[in-house]
């Protein structure tokens, strides 16, 4: 495992991110748009209004959303790398496929974490949520672990989908279901048994739940804190991270698409 190569891949992700002003701006503004509009709407139908202000309730979910867009989309940039040819250059470097997968995932983790921490500092003061040092530390751990798990998952998706056109499909069939079944906007325990079972297959659900443990500990008894044990959240995220990384490394090793495509064109 070449540490230098991993650093190089991460450094490139950072340079690219800070050059894409629009992407930075969107990732920082998006959660506040949700806070204002979705927050206002859902607050009117939220049954727990006497117990907790809805905007405060959705803060952990919004942080989870920042992590998801930040790290999942960063890892999905591998699709763009393939189109631009950069991936081929990386594949011809004398490094293992697992090194590439690790570098890409760590880059995505760093981006997801940075964005979530930036949004978090503003968001928590806006909704007046003061979890204390232990809570903040746990929230940070939750953000890092979720970024890692979602980054690995994004890379796996990128290794599977072949073109940018499929990107929209990913948004509709991965990102939105993941968000709505994560507990970000409403408690998942009230969903029917079938949907509730799907929640356990959703990495974001573990991340949001861990964030609720960290930030909404005071409302646990009222039913608005974490809904699963902390240990399960951590184990779930770790499992998704490891499985995603291993699978993505395997799939990246089979990048025969380039030459194969050339031969399709010939016939």
């Amino acid at each position: 495992m070449s540490r230098r190569a991993v650093c190089g891949i991460v450094a490139r992700e950072l340079i690219r991110f800070q050059r894409q002003r629009g992407r930075v701006l969107a990732s920082l503004v998006r959660p506040f748009v949700w806070l204002i509009f979705a927050g206002a709407g859902f607050a009117t139908v939220f049954t727990g209004a006497g117990e907790i202000d809805y905007r405060r309730y959705m803060a952990p979910g919004l942080l989870g959303m920042v992590v998801m867009f930040g790290s999942l989309l960063a890892a999905l940039s591998t699709v763009t790398d393939r189109d631009a040819g950069v991936l081929r250059m990386v594949l011809v470097a004398p490094i293992r496929r697992s090194t590439i997968a690790l570098g890409k995932t760590l880059g995505a983790t760093l981006l997801g974490t940075t964005q979530a921490v930036m949004v978090g500092t503003i968001l928590l003061s806006l909704v007046r949520l003061w979890p204390g040092p232990a809570g903040l530390l746990l929230a940070f751990v939750a953000i890092v672990l979720s970024s890692l798990a979602l980054g690995a998952l994004g890379l796996l998706l990128a290794a599977t989908i072949r073109s940018i056109e499929n990107f929209a499909g990913v948004m509709n069939f991965v990102v939105f279901p993941m968000l709505f079944l994560s507990g970000a906007l409403y408690p998942v325990r009230r969903l029917g048994p079938a949907l509730h079972a799907v929640v356990y297959l959703n990495p974001l659900a573990y991340g949001v739940d861990l964030l609720k443990h960290a930030l909404l500990a005071g409302w646990t008894s009222a039913g608005y804190g974490g809904e699963m044990p902390v240990a399960l959240d951590v184990a779930g995220l770790a499992a998704f991270a490891v499985a995603g990384l291993l699978a993505a490394a395997r799939l990246l090793g089979r990048e025969e698409g380039v030459t194969r495509a050339a031969f399709r064109e010939r016939d």
Partner: peptide, 21 residues
């Protein structure tokens, strides 16, 4: 070409240097 168009000339070479350890 397999260059990263968003990086500078020098950054592309530095990126490759790290990949090649």
């Amino acid at each position: 070409t397999t260059l990263d168009r968003d990086l500078t000339v020098e950054e592309n070479l530095r990126f490759a240097a790290r990949l090649w350890n």
